[in-house]
Amino acid sequence: MKQLNARPIKKVMEAQGRKKMRAMRRLEKLRKKSDMIADDDSKSELDKANEIQGLVKKMSGKKKTKPKVRLVVATGNNKGLSGRPRGIKGKYKMVDGVLKNEMRALKRIEKKHKKKKKHRN
């Protein structure tokens, strides 16, 4: 009984099986493509190897997560800066107190107009 209870849930096993089948299908596709490339006589061995390597990379490559946009508060030495702030790598967005206040005000005005429309209807 302990062995029966220790095995994984049926749905989990099915999902693992589907995952394995997809991987096998991908591998088979890759094998077919690489065989076609290897049989091609018009290309050099180096070109063939590079092409097959590219296929493998494309198939097994995991999707990269996008880096988050860094918010840089425009105070102190970043105030009135037109170029890239020092010490910031990657994507960034300059934010200052005035901009934040303007955004808040716009939201407040929008909310006010929505309430007026509800009362009219």
Rank of each mutant, 00 (worst) to 15 (best):
K2Y: 09
Q3L: 13
L4M: 11
N5E: 12
R7Y: 03
P8H: 08
I9P: 04
K10G: 09
K10A: 14
K11F: 05
K11S: 13
V12D: 10
E14V: 13
E14D: 09
A15Q: 09
Q16C: 04
Q16F: 02
R18T: 08
K19P: 02
K20D: 05
M21H: 13
A23C: 07
M24H: 13
M24Q: 15
M24D: 15
M24Y: 11
M24S: 15
M24N: 15
E28R: 05
E28G: 00
K29P: 01
L30A: 15
R31V: 10
R31Q: 13
K33S: 12
S34A: 15
D35M: 10
D35V: 02
D35A: 10
A38I: 12
A38L: 14
D39H: 09
D41Y: 03
K43A: 00
K43W: 01
L46T: 11
L46M: 03
D47E: 14
D47C: 01
K48G: 06
K48L: 10
A49P: 00
N50F: 03
I52Y: 09
V56P: 06
K57Q: 09
S60T: 15
K62Y: 01
P67F: 01
K68D: 03
V69Y: 04
R70M: 07
R70F: 09
L71C: 00
L71H: 04
V72M: 04
V72R: 02
V72Y: 06
V73F: 06
V73T: 07
G76T: 07
G76M: 07
G76L: 13
G76H: 00
N77K: 11
N77H: 09
N78G: 07
K79N: 07
G80R: 03
G80Q: 05
L81D: 06
L81M: 12
L81N: 11
L81A: 13
S82P: 11
G83P: 10
G83Y: 04
G83R: 10
R84C: 03
R84Y: 05
P85W: 03
P85T: 01
I88W: 02
I88H: 04
G90H: 03
G90M: 05
K91T: 10
K91Y: 12
Y92L: 02
Y92I: 06
M94L: 11
M94C: 01
G97Y: 12
G97W: 02
V98P: 04
V98T: 12
V98C: 03
V98L: 05
V98G: 01
L99F: 04
K100L: 14
K100I: 15
K100H: 08
N101I: 04
M103G: 08
M103I: 13
A105T: 05
L106F: 03
L106D: 12
L106P: 00
R108M: 12
I109W: 02
E110C: 05
E110M: 05
K111M: 08
K111R: 10
K112F: 11
H113F: 07
H113E: 12
K114C: 06
K114E: 15
K115A: 05
K116M: 14
K118L: 00
N121I: 00
N121V: 00
